[in-house]
């Protein structure tokens, strides 16, 4: 296993990117923290050292994405509507005070994650495809559809400037 001090410094290096990815998937602070914690558990259990910082980051992003998807598929999420069990209800914390984040987070996971990775993290489509184990064509179409959906939101909000331009740029990337 990796030395705990090494893990701590890796955690410190990538915590923000990881946490944002988890939040992007899970949509609230509590679940994002759970996913994050599980990712760190996997990191603590890892046997081999990383080859580079990029390797570290790529591995962590992949594990975090898998962990989020696993949590999203967890039986009790699928099966029970916790709103019907007020005794278990937890006040979910979110960051959606800023308008654009709130719009993106209102999209389905399959659109908002590629949008986050593409626009915010600056990953190329091919890299996102690798990290998420999804075909490039699928990522492209998810980005396209996500943007279309966002456009509708933005139209409603009355601000479209700059968005269409970037849209064109994506395909060429």
């Amino acid at each position: 296993m990796l030395d705990e001090r090494d893990v701590l410094s890796i955690y410190t290096r990538h915590k923000n990117a990881l946490y944002r990815l988890c939040y992007c998937y899970m949509g609230n602070v509590q679940d994002a923290s759970d996913a994050m914690q599980n990712t760190i558990v996997k990191l603590l259990e890892r046997e081999q050292a990383f080859e580079s910082v990029e390797h570290e980051r790529g591995w962590l992003m992949k594990v975090a994405a898998n962990e989020c998807r696993r949590l999203l598929k967890h039986w009790w999420r699928k099966r029970e509507d916790l709103d019907e069990y007020p005794e278990y209800a937890v006040q979910e914390e979110r960051y959606e005070e800023n308008g654009i984040l709130s719009m993106v987070m209102s999209l389905s996971v399959k659109y908002r994650v590629p949008i986050y990775m593409y626009y915010y993290e600056g990953y190329a489509v091919a890299e996102i495809s690798q990290l998420l184990h999804v075909k490039e064509s699928t990522i492209l179409s998810q980005l396209r559809r996500g943007r279309q959906k966002l456009k509708v939101e933005l139209e409603a909000d009355g601000d479209l400037s700059g968005f269409a331009h970037r849209q064109k740029g994506v395909e060429g990337k």
Binding site: E97, I100, Y119, F163
Partner: peptide
């Protein structure tokens, strides 16, 4: 908006 998108997760 695109610029805002690039910084949308800053608060997260």
């Amino acid at each position: 908006r695109e610029e805002k998108l690039k910084s949308a997760w800053d608060d997260v």
